[in-house]
Simulated scan of single mutants.
Amino acid sequence: MAADTAAAPAIPIIDLGPYLAGEPGALEATAAQLRHVNETIGFMTIVNHGVPAALVEEAFAACARFHAQPLEAKLAVKANAQLQGYVPLRGSTTRHSKINPDNKPNENEAFFMKRDGEDAGAPDRWPADLPGFREVALRYYDAMDALAQRLLPLYAVALDMPPGHFGPFCDRPLSGLRFTHYPPAEYGANQFGIAPHSDSSFITLLAQNKVPGLQLRTTAGEWIDMPVIPDSFVVNTGEVLHRWSNGRFINTPHRAYNVSAGPRYAIPYFFHPNPDTLIEALPTCRVPGEAPRFEPMTVGDYMAWFRNQNYDHVRKQDAA
């Protein structure tokens, strides 16, 4: 699954330090960088983001601990219809995306978490015999939510809106954290760790992985490797922001795999607005005389459609 490296563009690196420190002009300057990234490639690496490296390492270790359990223990917290809990190996098939036809089930297993009121996930969807796991996962979840919230003014200004525009739509976010295990595999035709797709999110925050395996597709149609930058996060635009910006911010397709000799883990955080938020084209993104590119849809409705498309246990339940 080699990348097309001949004319691969550099993935932009954005330093959040000046913005997070409140330096004069940093909001506007950083938003201008972000605007260019999201209108041209849709992926970036952020550094000086304020998330402790030790917490990221704890989250990766918790992910590995969960997946090291016997299958029976993991199936005891099998995912519900809201996608909270464990999805077994090959328990998902990427169907919402038309980038690659006839995808086979994804070669990964994952544990999904959501925050719901004072808890994250359904009460019975936490592993019973992993002391400290829930606490680490929640601390990481909170750190990711805090980072996403700090990024919202940048996205608003980048889209020519007031800095506080997105805040009221994201104060009860329908976000999710996923602890994913990609076992070593030999991939056949239409087979991937996770098949080519664009994310459902507003944005996705992905801690850099020491084991490479993430590739993105450029606007020229070439697949390139995402470089590993220590102590950084990969950030990409999801479908919700793509729709909200009337297609102005691109939701770049990407895929993942593991051709190493050992396990590969990923801990992506998918940041979504409030479930009742209506996603319709921002006024600054509409083209005079043209209808918006997408029909308005609430975040909750979009996510229900997304789950039904890709996760086999949800499809079976809805078909029953």
Rank of each mutant, 00 (worst) to 15 (best):
H272I: 03
V240N: 00
R255A: 12
F270G: 00
C285R: 04
T277W: 15
S245P: 11
S245A: 07
D276T: 06
I279H: 04
T284A: 15
N310Y: 08
N251K: 08
H242S: 06
Y311V: 15
N258V: 01
H197R: 02
E239G: 04
D199T: 03
A261L: 10
L214M: 11
N258M: 00
A185T: 10
R248Q: 05
R315Y: 13
H272V: 02
S201D: 06
I224L: 05
T180Y: 09
I279D: 03
T298K: 07
P288N: 04
A189G: 04
Q309F: 02
S201Q: 00
I229W: 07
F306W: 13
W305Q: 15
L241W: 08
Y257N: 03
L282Q: 09
D301T: 11
V287E: 09
E280I: 13
P196F: 11
N308A: 15
I229D: 10
N209H: 03
P292Q: 06
Q309T: 06
C285P: 03
H197L: 06
K316L: 08
A261I: 10
F306N: 01
P283K: 01
L214C: 12
N310H: 04
R243W: 07
A207S: 11
W244I: 13
F294G: 01
A261C: 01
P196M: 15
G300W: 08
V314T: 01
N274R: 07
I203R: 02
P292Y: 06
L214P: 11
A189K: 15
Q191A: 14
Y257D: 01
P253D: 05
Q215L: 13
T277N: 04
T218F: 07
D199P: 05
P268R: 01
P292A: 02
D318S: 13
E280S: 05
E290L: 10
C285S: 15
H197Q: 04
P275Y: 06
N236T: 15
A261W: 08
E222D: 15
V287C: 03
E290M: 13
F233R: 02
S201K: 02
T277K: 03
N190W: 12
N209T: 14
A189P: 05
S200H: 11
S200K: 00
M297C: 14
F294R: 06
G221P: 06
